[in-house]
Design a protein around this nucleic acid. Structure first.
Lengths: 342, 342
DNA sequence: CTGAAAGCGCTAACAG
DNA sequence: CTGTTAGCGCTTTCAG
């Protein structure tokens, strides 16, 4: 199907003027006479002329497109981030190209390459879980293409980053439980290799210390409870069978929290009156009407917005401007629904 | 930051041959001598030459990009669709440009226009809830730009479509309840204006009839229970207070199902032993470990894949080929978790 | 005030 | 086998 694009030439021919005049008239260049401008604009309107953005991109070597590399689209947190990115990008006149790594390193390498080849003006990236080699990202960075990391950042590359304050989140979640009267708060860990989980654990410990509660290592289960519900259940089972069982559980995500909740109920105990739960919400709970679990909501939308803002700023900076890399740390929000009080 | 793109010219200059020779060598044109090819390829490799896809697009008037207009990104069903689209597009060498209408008609108009101006090769669209005027879509269609609708389709435009078989879903969900022994199945409706909800209701009725059960209008609540949990609760309340209360509930989405479940429990009744629930899962339940509720899962990933496949097929069809519009109807999947038997 | 020409990076006739 | 030329649609000097 041949698309009969109206071009600047068509208008020129019709009006018997030169293409350059049309171009100028269209962008309201002061040199052009009001009369010509009017004619051109009217004809353009009539023919429904739309500038060919590809030609523009080629000429200006600017595509007005930003690339987003994302580990998974089907994920509450990440989809929220996309939404935030889209929000800002759209308002600033940029299109958003999304490439999903599916948590695969190889795919991430291909994706960054593809986006680069598509000449995006800048790129937002959150690394896959597998990624430990940063050559593909360093390549882009060295190429001078503006880049901003969000959530899963790469420390060794000097560019702006947006992250969540997980320490603070872990701290506040725990503090909340303490203030509700819980005293023996267990901690279901996430994968220890990831920075954010260690941060949350540290926040948890700080809150305990601050309130004069002991850090009981038997309540801190190091196994990763946040990927498999059954693991979470097993670990909770173990906690409940302790001589001195916990009266609250800190879960690193929804899978862990849900597994814990189910097991607790199976034991005939009640949430939150017998055992309180606070869960980080990276997926389910934000959507879930579960008033018994206090959730730590991740600021996905804000993260997307902030990352897009920083990227666009970097893209639009004049060549001689010095862009200083900043790292934005966003706070989580503690969502207490209904009566989650002990 | 000036990006020093390596171009075909650079290679030509270095090797003291013409750009066209380089171009040909790079695409393994038979005319070029093996020696030249080798030289060119090696230098290209060494300089890390990457063809400028914008120049290619301009020349071929093909961008290898497909546009996706989506009502909401942060939605389990829709994000799954994006994932399916991305999957197919990536494999076929296309990039995906995502534009979110946020269920706004105006925004949808802007989005389609923006994608069009970005010269996407084709467009996948699911209409916003507000959309009742199709001029913007007809415009694209008349322009000859390949277009495929998914989920929220526009009947008046002749192009391929991918939809869910809601009648079948409603039918099977109801049938399942009946086979579990439930006899008085209530129906919490969705917004009556939307086709899919009427379809499900029809499926529900057919299942009842087929099994010789009466269609009791007092059990079919016409109010839209699927947007507001409180409405769902109220309606369930009303159902439970009937002289002959239902022994099962058909909910049109997770909000309705969840509201129903909570209310049922508040009445001291048990799900599913006292009252069974089947819920369409457009958001929460797919993610929710709720073994007491049977869910009708929407085939989002397949829908995205199928839509992308149809679109790419249309894009890549030769000009003289006749593309016949097809409408793919995808089946839902009934997910029975744990013991949802009465 | 307007036009001619060059060029963004690439490819494809058309000529050797 | 390889080079020259023209052109995709647009902007922007440079000349009038």
């Amino acid at each position: 199907m041949k698309s009969n694009q109206i071009t600047i030439k068509d208008i020129a021919r019709e009006l018997d003027i030169s293409p350059s005049t049309v171009s100028r008239a269209l962008k309201d260049h002061p040199d052009i006479s009001p009369k010509t401008k009017k004619q051109v604009r009217e004809l353009a309107e009539k023919l429904n002329y739309q500038p060919n953005s590809i030609a523009l991109s080629l000429r200006s070597s600017k595509s007005n497109t930003i690339g987003v590399v994302i580990p998974q689209v089907v994920h509450f947190f990440f989809s929220t981030i996309i939404s935030g990115i889209e929000d800002i990008a759209y308002a600033a006149g940029y299109s958003v190209m999304v490439a999903q790594s599916n948590e695969s390193y190889d795919r991430e390498v291909m994706d960054t390459k593809a986006l680069f080849n598509n000449r995006v003006d800048g790129i937002l990236v959150s690394m896959s879980r597998e990624t430990t080699d940063y050559a593909h990202l360093e390549f882009l960075h060295n190429r001078g293409i503006p880049m901003v990391f969000y959530d899963r950042v790469c420390d060794s590359i000097d560019c702006s980053k947006v992250v969540v304050d997980d320490f603070d989140g872990g701290y506040r979640a725990t503090k909340h439980l303490i203030e509700q009267g819980y005293k023996r708060i267990a901690h279901l860990a996430g994968p220890h290799s990831l920075h954010m989980f260690r941060q949350r654990l540290d926040g948890y410990k700080k809150a305990l210390q601050e309130h004069g509660l002991p850090i009981d290592e038997s309540l801190i289960l190091p196994e990763n409870a946040s990927d498999d519900e059954n693991v979470a259940k097993e670990l909770t089972e173990r906690l409940l069978n302790l001589d001195e069982r916990p009266d609250a559980i800190f879960a690193n995500n929804d899978i862990a929290a849900l597994g814990a909740m189910i097991t607790i109920k199976e034991h005939g105990l009640k949430v939150p009156s017998d055992i309180g739960i606070v869960g980080f919400s990276n997926w389910r709970f934000t959507a879930l009407t579960e008033p018994t679990i206090t959730t730590v909501a991740q600021p996905g939308f804000e993260m997307g917005q902030e990352a897009a803002r920083l990227l666009i700023e970097a893209i639009e900076a004049k060549d001689d401007e010095v862009i200083t890399s900043v790292t934005k740390v966003l706070k989580t929000e503690l969502v207490v629904r209904g009566s989650s009080v002990k």
